[in-house]
Design a protein around this nucleic acid. Structure first.
Lengths: 167, 167
DNA sequence: GACGGATAATTCGATGATCGAAATAGTAGA
DNA sequence: TCTACTATTTCGATCATCGAATTATCCGTC
């Protein structure tokens, strides 16, 4: 049976459940918190990606954003339209290839956008304060392998769907 | 600069990023994997909740499902319609209060539904095999506090939205 | 140096999940 | 029985997303 913490620590099932709780809550967060700013779950995710890339000096393109979010090109265009209308991002035509669009974050919006994410970041920082460096390593490793696992299983499923279609 | 593993292990920012990657990937998983079975992200989440409750012998009602998923009553009805049409769940009128609906999982579907979730569970089990009981404790603690934190911040945001509306 | 194929992004029409408001069905108390 | 209340469903509208077709641009080849 599903014993608990006695011998072997949390079971796989325990961890799965915790993980599921977390992702559900994360969905809720994105939805509820985004609503405050007129954004949807997708928009929040997209904005996070765009800001991250912009911060690294490699602005995202619509197509790579589409790939990240697994969204169709048309949906991505609409998504960027929404974000642009709200002033969160800007379309820029880079010098070299004029077919491309670079998604940039207007200086004025950087600060405002940051307010979208900092409350959670600060709350996390506080609740993680008790974790030692070694424990953080463990957690990081866990998060990484779990993400990889989902990616792998997800890819398998996608292959099978592809197979079904081509059959 | 954002130092790495040298002194203090993964930083808060590192962990935030990993967590975000995980939730994004989880979304993708639910979406892509559900698509294989004609389900959407919401449907997968709903089915997980319904099965879990049914397994515990306390079948969910549409309204409590709506509350869990933060969906409107009408959306929930439509959701259940979809699941019922595919044979994943059944509406039952419990004896006592005939306004209520109990969401049950037909015996025939239990097995099939399980196939929806086991591939991931098995993959997880494999990739978590290397974690010691102590490490699992750490991870479980991390997942719990993180979920709680999101819930708390999310609740704050909801309050503020309510304030805005009532203003 | 123009032409044809490839690539990036967008537009268009359609689908469908979701919402808010109103309707239906049932319960409980006076 | 009448009224207030609760659980669920129905209805009409909105909007994110999709697939297919379109526009604009680049690049390799003759």
């Amino acid at each position: 049976m599903t014993r608990d913490t006695d011998g072997g620590g949390p079971t796989d099932r325990d961890l799965s459940r915790l993980l599921q709780n977390l992702t559900v809550e994360s969905d809720r967060y994105a939805e509820r918190f985004g609503a405050k700013h007129g954004l949807h779950r997708t928009d929040v995710n997209a904005l996070a990606l765009i800001m991250e890339s912009a911060r690294l000096g490699v602005p995202l393109s619509p197509s790579s954003l589409a790939k990240e979010l697994r969204l169709s090109p048309s949906a991505t265009t609409a998504l960027i339209d929404r974000l642009e209308a709200l002033g969160h991002v800007e379309r820029a035509r880079p010098a070299g290839d004029r077919r491309r669009v670079a998604l940039e974050v207007p200086a004025a919006a950087v600060e405002a956008n940051r307010h979208l994410f900092t409350p959670l970041a600060m709350a996390f920082a506080q609740s993680w304060a008790g974790f030692t460096p070694e424990e953080r390593e463990v957690v990081a490793r866990f998060l990484q392998v779990s993400t990889e696992t989902m990616k792998a299983v997800s890819a398998e499923a996608a292959d099978q769907v592809r197979d079904q279609r081509s059959r």
